[in-house]
């Protein structure tokens, strides 16, 4: 069974890009539009890895990561955040919230898969 990856991003473009890259690499993809939606999806859906944007309406990536880490079932689920230009402050805040790593936008599929490899068992 292939790994299921939850992508959380308010941008349809970014969701589609992630989806295409991940499907091509053989992953199963589940999507959510923002933090609130992401947490709702996780109520019903298992995810092996989570990839989330930071800047989102309703609930941003930091809030979402904290929410995920608050669930027993997802304490050990790797979470990668999508950031731009290697913003050190955002990375630090994301790590503080419980993120496992980051993907710098714009990413290419190789780097994306590479980042997943470094966190996914």
């Amino acid at each position: 069974m292939s790994m299921t990856i939850l992508t959380v991003d308010d941008s349809r473009t970014m969701r589609d890009m992630l989806k295409m890259s991940l499907l091509r690499a053989g992953f199963t993809v589940v999507q959510a539009e923002d933090g609130v939606h992401g947490l709702e999806v996780l109520q019903e859906q298992h995810a092996d890895v989570i990839i989330t944007d930071i800047n989102m309406p309703r609930m941003d990536g930091f809030g979402f990561i904290e929410g995920v880490r608050g669930k027993d079932a997802f304490k050990a689920t790797p979470i990668l955040v999508l950031t731009t230009e290697g913003d050190p402050e955002k990375k630090a805040r994301a790590k503080q919230a419980g993120a496992s790593g980051w993907i710098v936008k714009p990413f290419n599929p190789e780097k994306l898969i590479d980042a997943i490899r470094r966190v996914a068992a």
Partner: peptide, 24 residues
């Protein structure tokens, strides 16, 4: 215990090989 994939299941190498790119 939470369901965890065995280490051997690791990355989705096999599905990638078996499934065409446009799996969907």
């Amino acid at each position: 215990p939470a369901p965890q994939p065995a280490p051997a299941a690791a990355l989705p190498a096999a599905p990638a090989a078996e499934q065409p790119a446009a799996a969907e």
